[in-house]
Amino acid sequence: MSHGSSRIAALDGLRAVSILLVLISHAWLGHIVPGGLGVTIFFFISGFIITRLMISEWDEAGTMRISQFYIRRFFRLMPALTVFLVVSVITLSLAGQEVVWKEILAVFLYTANYYGIFIGFSGDTFPPPLAITWSLAVEEHFYLIFPSLFVALIARWKQFATLIIAALIIALGWRCWLAYGVGLEQLPHYRIYKATDTRVDSILYGTLLAIILARKPAAWERLNHIACFFAGIFLILATLLIRSEEFRESLRYSLQGVALFILFPYAVLSNSRISSVLANRFFLYVGKVSYSLYLYHWLAFGIVVFWMGDASLPLRIFVMLVLSFAMADASYRWVENPGLRAGRKLLKS
């Protein structure tokens, strides 16, 4: 198993799988490809990798500097997000669409998920590109709180793990109450799917796995097994096959979290056939550009809908894919990477 802060190739590969699920589902194939699962995997990976890095820093230095965490986070996310917003505003202007400045503010303040649920991003003829930032808001709400909790509790990791498990149960109970008690028809559209209070547990499953694998070596022996991988895959397939809306908005996210928890060690962290497939060159590339690809694919979708709405489906899909990857690659090379280098330089100074 890989330890510490070294990069895990198969993890980039799984990140690629998650963004490809989102991208392909949004390319008019959502009735076949489960894009929502891609976002759930994204959340899980985020929780796992950031907690893993925190534990590595804690074990090496005896502490985890919260200020440095936020500086790294800022330079990781904000340069690409800012340029994406500028490109989106220019594109909307070219399309003759009104630019609502409150929406831009919602993105910068990481409240896009609740803004989208309760107010709604504008755009009838041009699908609103900024709406895609809802998942960034969920992550940032989590990372406003988690580093402080980590520093306070990681020395007593069993209590920390117990607290996380309690939070997972509470989140499930809250979703069940909203779905079955209040009723989905009484809730705004996407209330459960996009809100932090109902989706944060998807990140927590990843954090819990990182803590347990780092502090309880016996767990690695139990989970690093092909049977765990297939059990996880089976569980995920079951969650996709059950079509009840109430189930999908309540139990599904928890069951997918459990599934990822048990399949992740064998699929990603061991030297298995699965991890070698995930570590192939194409998946590694897609994984590296995944953040920019996530941002720009929805803008590409809007461009195709607005200017090529009457084109054939294969042509629309092709143009959307080419546009998405072209913009993501440019963003990765000329915005993301320089931003990361600037952040590292600042931390060394």
Rank of each mutant, 00 (worst) to 15 (best):
residue 136 L to T: 13
residue 137 A to M: 09
residue 137 A to K: 08
residue 140 E to K: 12
residue 141 H to A: 08
residue 142 F to H: 01
residue 142 F to N: 04
residue 142 F to W: 04
residue 145 I to W: 10
residue 145 I to Y: 13
residue 148 S to N: 05
residue 153 L to C: 14
residue 154 I to D: 06
residue 155 A to K: 14
residue 157 W to F: 14
residue 159 Q to C: 09
residue 159 Q to V: 12
residue 161 A to I: 11
residue 162 T to Q: 10
residue 164 I to H: 02
residue 168 L to F: 08
residue 171 A to F: 08
residue 174 W to L: 14
residue 174 W to M: 05
residue 175 R to P: 04
residue 183 G to P: 05
residue 183 G to D: 04
residue 184 L to D: 06
residue 184 L to G: 04
residue 190 Y to P: 13
residue 191 R to D: 06
residue 191 R to N: 06
residue 194 K to E: 15
residue 194 K to Q: 15
residue 195 A to P: 02
residue 199 R to S: 12
residue 199 R to F: 02
residue 201 D to P: 07
residue 203 I to V: 12
residue 203 I to S: 02
residue 204 L to F: 07
residue 204 L to I: 10
residue 204 L to C: 04
residue 206 G to D: 02
residue 207 T to G: 02
residue 208 L to T: 03
residue 209 L to D: 00
residue 210 A to Y: 00
residue 211 I to T: 07
residue 217 P to A: 12
residue 223 L to R: 04
residue 225 H to P: 02
residue 230 F to R: 02
residue 231 A to K: 07
residue 232 G to D: 09
residue 232 G to I: 03
residue 233 I to L: 15
residue 239 T to Q: 10
residue 241 L to H: 08
residue 241 L to F: 15
residue 242 I to R: 14
residue 243 R to T: 09
residue 244 S to Y: 02
residue 247 F to C: 09
residue 248 R to E: 14
residue 249 E to G: 11
residue 252 R to A: 10
residue 256 Q to R: 10
residue 257 G to N: 03
residue 258 V to E: 00
residue 261 F to N: 00
residue 261 F to Q: 00
residue 262 I to K: 06
residue 265 P to S: 05
